[in-house]
Nucleic acid binder design. Structure first.
Lengths: 153, 153
DNA sequence: GCGCCTTACTTGTGTTATGCAAGTACTTAT
DNA sequence: ATAAGTACTTGCATAACACAAGTAAGGCGC
């Protein structure tokens, strides 16, 4: 019983979101950061989806410009840069989680259900319903935990 | 404390999803069906985002081929076809809702918060947290309620 | 039946985005 | 000093897209 007004405001929220991350590569990059703990340009290049170097550079620039990522120099290797999520980027985790839940439900590849995303928290699927908040917090703490892996000292 | 295995399964769930609806236009079409109650080719064309006719046709074909939409002839006008969501398509509503929530939080256009999506249920934002299931059911019932609008008798 | 409008596309053409291979500049390791 | 690592940039071929026009089938008035 909802009224449907035909007036158009400036921009619909869905369009706002799609203009920022509504392409395949942006979300692949975000997935790599969120679930695989990646942070370097070279790490993104090594993903099985094989993103081109120019596309990766342009997407990182755009995601940074839109405030989803921040780029800082790695103090332990000045030729490397660390890309990490801002709060605006972190708040996209629910979108990714819903997409994963949907895919697992409808992708009938046999091997996919046993191995959701390499590096994602255990029991991700069941916890989506029972402990969504805790799951998101674990993902966030996993991300901040990982930078220390690369400092070999 | 999650183990990160480096083995790659055939296809990651995020990639599966993106290969199906990971472009701007597919999600615009789904938004129009879900929140605006649209169902005809001509209605999709009239959206403010101005999708081209050939792109619309190719996307409708793909979404149907992927099982997100079903296409049936309108029995009251045989030159028209009704595009409607399958269950697989309906299960994308949570993704759209999360995207809307994210956009409303970060899009600082002043007029956007007062008028979320024309035709969407009232109090959508607050109900995202307090009554997510009920909200989804209302969206679904809104969709099935609307076909009767066009049968004038 | 015969125009004429509506509806849902298809086709052709120019422009934009992407994919791929190679090259550049700076930093680090030997 | 030289080589290797890292993060890009550049040039070119290909694919996707936007735009305008055209086609085909159904509905409607007469």
């Amino acid at each position: 019983m909802t009224k449907r007004k035909e007036l158009n405001s400036g921009k619909c929220p869905v369009t706002y979101a799609l203009d920022i991350f509504g392409d395949k590569w942006s979300l692949i990059i975000l997935r790599d950061i969120i679930f695989k703990g990646k942070k370097y340009y070279g790490e993104f290049l090594s993903s099985p989806e094989k993103i081109s170097t120019n596309i990766l550079a342009s997407r990182l620039l755009k995601l940074e410009a839109e405030g989803l990522l921040s780029k800082i120099q790695d103090t332990h290797n000045l030729s490397k840069y660390i890309y990490q999520l801002t709060h605006k980027g972190e708040d996209l985790i629910p979108v990714l989680l819903d997409m994963i839940e949907w895919s697992v439900k409808y992708d009938n590849q046999p091997d996919i259900n046993s191995n959701i995303i390499n590096g994602a928290p255990d029991n991700l699927l069941t916890r989506l319903h029972t402990d969504r908040e805790g799951l998101i917090h674990e993902i966030l703490s996993n991300m901040s935990e990982h930078p220390s892996q690369d400092l070999k000292h």
